[in-house]
Nucleic acid binder design. Structure first.
Lengths: 218, 218, 218, 218
DNA sequence: TATGAATGAGCATTCATTCAT
DNA sequence: GATGAATGAATGCTCATTCAT
């Protein structure tokens, strides 16, 4: 046997990874209940037994897929270099990053939706949930710098504002197919999406710039 | 058999309705794949056979549940009486209606999420999809009256604006559990929800009132 | 469809019974762990699903088989008519009944052995265990009548004496195959068995008749 | 690697022995079908592969455990020094030895029961079965000396009498749990067991001493 | 209209065993 | 001698669905 073929056969890290990727894809397509372990194994080009060898159960595999997906999102946000960028410019880049990340990773939306169906029971058993909060610091820094330089209103709660940004990007992707069916328009098509994003960005910037009121009360 | 007991036993419309309600609840709890026909039958206080007698298959039952859910939403919107209300007041009422409806009908969010998981395949087989579009007229009327009276900017696409409103209400409810787990805050709790809605309403109104630019491009 | 064939197809009590009989046989052959539900179903000429329809689980089916087996043994003992028979004659009939019952029902020995392997966990969940004690009354009556008429020693504990009788019949059957292998003699063969039973009966009668000492101490 | 650690790791005889002991225990707990090779490996503090390295298969491991158990019993009997002891005293010591050995080695009873479940198929493939017969010589010697000196009846078949002794000790241990459950009394508890043994010993001695009749017929 | 009985394919999971190092 | 990785066939059990009354 050549070194190459043996590397394919005996490759613990590779097998583990192929199973994780296959699981993420199958869970995306059918949700937790809809995914089949034999389909995951087949897609990973291994057998069902290895799935249990590496992950223990379908549930633990779902948790691993969820964690991996969250991990990647957190890592991408942490890699953002916006410290030296002027606040107004930075917030636009941040908003676009979030929306583009969602668009580029539809598996995240499906997994998170499924997780909400199960009242986040898998996430509760995971340690990843504690890793998310610190990431909000990226947005918090932009908002604080904007408020300090007078271009943004003060006292905008960063977590609530993150929610608003997230909502506007998430909804269009999550509901893409029902929206297309009920309204006959695909809001994820480049032209349409650009227009929606333009309006949303304008709305968010308008809100941050406006002086009257703030989101946390008096 | 006495007349009374036969009236209890033989109640076609009642049985059909109990099955539909039970199905809606089970599909909400576990999605299409996660719901079990015997659980639906048990919840409806009938037997599995009746489910097939009235709806033909699990899939057709899901379609019926989805249609019923959409129907109710469409009916509620159509019943809104905002024709005589000044635009600024009307839009606030409309926004609140949408968000409150979502909050009061979590089954809709779960069913729609599930439907998107399946690329809206059930909706495609349904006639209900054509009933949704006309409803946008309610919002369109408000926006047109606002633009005509000069309080709102012109040329706001009503469908896109509906999307924005919907997104802000949908996201918080759809992602309620993962948000609570990752951020330690339940955004559906009355106090928290009121603050989020206040900020969002202010943002939407700010956008409509602003004169510069519009949502459909230059 | 003729009446006969329909009786085979739709026969709840018959199906239940066939499953129970098949299960008893498979549990006898392989023990609890060794028995296979698909083999039970096949032997019962039905499908695995019916097994769960009627009994709920493999474990509950084992309990049912065990109960059924104990039930039959209890019923057979209760049917013994020894009240008017002289004590010495009655005890011989009783002893022979026990040993012959064991020989005629090897499934009981195997099921009971298996149950002891599992520390009687199934029996503990059953109500049958309370039905056994009263049956000892049959033996108790014989011993009391024998003591009263002076042919048997007094104060023989009926439960302990039942144990002794049972042990002598049980062991030869339970260990039939290992005994045959290690000693080259099948103690269940008619001739051999008759000799063993003769000796054992003589020994038991000798003990009962002897005046010195008793089984419960001074 | 240091000399010490390598001595711990590389210990063929130790590993083999640990596997055999672990197997005996697991087979005792669950029978052949109920025992799991990974549990045996875990209990032996090694891996499943070693089990196959040393014993070839689960079946051969069971045979080895059975042989080892029989071996120990045979060795213990062979070690008995009763040649110079008067027959009446010797038979009491012998009886007590058998019953105490059973009580001290419950794994033997479970393994033998399991072996009978499988019609002694493993024993048949083993050479140990031929080792058992000669051991009966110990009992035969006592009976012959007793008959010669006139304290015991003549022509008692030693094998059949071994069976009787064995049965009385075996049954109480083998059926310990079902007896406790059905009669509410644990016949292996010291006080209870002493009384049962006393009665049984008296009965056996009474039989040997009696002059009338014999166990092999006219 | 209603219901208990029946079905076969499929489900997640575990089995004893072997491979490659 | 020892080990982690890999496998295919089974395991107990559940699925949506249909039959017969």
């Amino acid at each position: 046997m050549t070194k190459e073929s043996s590397m394919i056969k005996r490759n613990p890290e590779g097998t583990r990874r192929r199973i994780l990727d296959a699981a993420t894809e199958e869970f995306r397509l059918g949700g937790y209940a809809g995914a089949r372990v034999d389909c995951i194994a087949k897609r990973a080009e291994t057998n069902e037994r290895m799935l249990y060898y590496y992950f223990g159960s379908k549930k633990k595999l779902f948790i691993a897929a969820l964690e991996h997906t969250y991990d990647a999102f957190i890592a991408a946000q942490s890699a953002l270099q916006l410290a030296g960028v002027p606040p107004e410019e930075a917030i636009v880049l941040y908003i676009r990053f979030i929306w583009d990340y969602y668009a580029a990773h539809p598996e995240m939306i499906r997994l998170v939706n499924n997780e909400n169906l199960h009242h986040a029971e898998h996430l509760r058993e995971s340690t990843i949930r504690t890793s998310f909060m610190p990431v909000i610091g990226v947005l918090e820094d932009i908002l604080m710098r904007g408020a300090a330089s007078g271009v943004f209103r003060a006292q905008v709660d960063p977590l609530r504002f993150y929610l608003t940004i997230s909502a506007l990007g998430y909804y269009v992707l999550s509901n893409r197919y029902t929206l297309a069916e009920t309204f006959g328009r695909d809001f994820m098509q480049p032209d349409e999406r650009a227009l929606v994003q333009l309006a949303h960005t304008e709305m968010l910037l308008g809100y941050l710039r406006s002086a009257v009121g703030n989101s946390t009360g008096p």
